[in-house]
Measured scan of single mutants.
Amino acid sequence: DETGKELVLVLYDYQEKSPREVTIKKGDILTLLNSTNKDWWKIEVNDRQGFVPAAYLKKLD
């Protein structure tokens, strides 16, 4: 059920640097789980959840 889920576009590649982070690729469109922290957003990638720098993402309307 995708209702109410926010999507984000990945602006730059990011390689995870800790187990709490996930790797993302430029151009991916992913589900945003939590954006309350202005610097690190929690997203879902391939059934994995983790954090990436918010500056690497853009919210889609």
Rank of each mutant, 00 (worst) to 15 (best):
A55M: 15
L11S: 02
V8C: 09
T3A: 13
K59H: 07
E6L: 14
D61I: 13
L57F: 02
L33K: 05
N37V: 05
L30Y: 10
E16M: 12
G50Y: 08
L32R: 01
S35C: 09
T23C: 04
T31F: 11
D13N: 08
N37C: 09
P53C: 03
L33W: 05
I43Q: 00
K26I: 05
T31W: 12
T3M: 15
D1M: 15
S18K: 08
K38Q: 13
E2H: 15
V52S: 02
Q49M: 09
V10Q: 01
K25C: 09
G50W: 05
T3N: 13
T23R: 04
P53D: 01
D1G: 15
W40A: 02
V45K: 14
N34A: 08
T31Q: 13
R48I: 07
D39S: 11
E21W: 03
S35F: 07
I29M: 06
K26R: 10
D1Y: 14
D39K: 11
N37S: 10
L7V: 09
D13A: 07
D61R: 10
V22Y: 03
D39H: 14
S35K: 08
D61Y: 09
K5Q: 10
L9D: 01
Y14V: 01
T3C: 11
I24Q: 00
Y14D: 01
I24A: 05
G50L: 06
K38G: 10
K26Q: 10
R48E: 05
P19K: 08
S18T: 13
S18R: 09
L9W: 06
T31R: 15
T3E: 12
I24F: 02
K58A: 14
F51N: 03
L7Y: 15
I24T: 03
N34K: 07
E16I: 10
S35Q: 09
D1H: 14
E44K: 10
L9H: 05
D13M: 03
T3G: 13
K38W: 07
L32F: 03
A54L: 02
D39C: 11
L33S: 03
Y56E: 01
P53L: 03
A55L: 11
K58P: 01
L7Q: 12
L33I: 15
E21V: 02
L7M: 12
E44R: 10
K38D: 10
G4V: 15
N34D: 14
D1I: 15
L33V: 11
L60G: 04
V8N: 00
N46I: 09
L7K: 14
V45N: 10
I29N: 02
Y14M: 01
Y12T: 08
